[in-house]
């Protein structure tokens, strides 16, 4: 089964295993360090300890198997992600962070405009900006006005 996987997919698989190993090792440490709380029945941490233990063992075994497969087959190649995906990923993170700095409205207009232009270079700026503005207005109306969702707007709050 593993033969059909490209080495890039294996690398991504390994990234997931490593994330799981690190994260659940921390969780297991937390579970082991917590004082037991049970008089009758299972302790609070018994169940998590078992599940974390199984995940760590499974991920370690699969990671090892992948490494052995890579060494044996000599396939180490890693296809880099397309520039547009990488930039989009960074932009999504920056966009979310901007909610707290310049507010939801402004950051949404800017994000949709730039993202639309980034993914299709020949798209007119005006169209992109109109889509950004339209999306923000519609979402503000539906969520903000109809459902009373209070979006973060630090600049607006400062002005008001």
């Amino acid at each position: 089964m593993g033969d059909r996987k490209t080495s890039t997919a294996k690398w991504y698989e390994n990234i997931v295993y490593i994330i799981c190993l690190v994260f659940f090792s921390i969780e297991l440490h937390e579970a082991l360090a917590t004082k037991p709380r049970a008089v009758n029945g299972m302790q609070s941490m018994t169940f998590p300890k078992v599940i974390f233990g199984i995940i760590i063992v499974m991920c370690a075994v699969k990671l090892l198997m992948n490494i052995i497969w890579m060494i044996r087959s000599g396939e180490y190649g890693f296809e880099l992600l397309d520039r547009r995906i990488l930039i989009s990923l960074v932009m999504i993170i920056v966009y979310a962070a901007l909610w707290q700095i310049i507010g939801f409205g402004l950051s949404s207009v800017i994000f949709v405009t730039i993202e639309s232009k980034l993914l299709r270079n020949n798209a007119p700026w005006l169209h992109c900006a109109l889509v950004g503005l339209g999306t923000t207005v519609v979402l503000y109306f539906v969520f903000g006005f109809l459902f009373n969702v209070d979006f973060p707007e630090p600049i607006l709050e400062m002005i008001m």
């Binding site: 989009s88 999504i92 966009y95 979310a96 909610w99 707290q100 939801f104 949404s108 994000f111 949709v112 405009t113 993202e115 639309s116 232009k117 980034l118 993914l119 299709r120 798209a123 992109c128 889509v131 950004g132 999306t135 923000t136 979402l139 969520f143 459902f147 969702v149 209070d150 979006f151 973060p152």
Partner: peptide, 24 residues
């Protein structure tokens, strides 16, 4: 067009997750 849809969906997704508890 996909270029417009991607941006709109990102905003909609983040708004959707925010709307439930209004918690960043």
């Amino acid at each position: 067009p996909v270029n417009y849809l991607s941006g709109i969906l990102v905003v909609l997704s983040l708004v959707g997750s925010f709307a439930i508890r209004q918690n960043f």
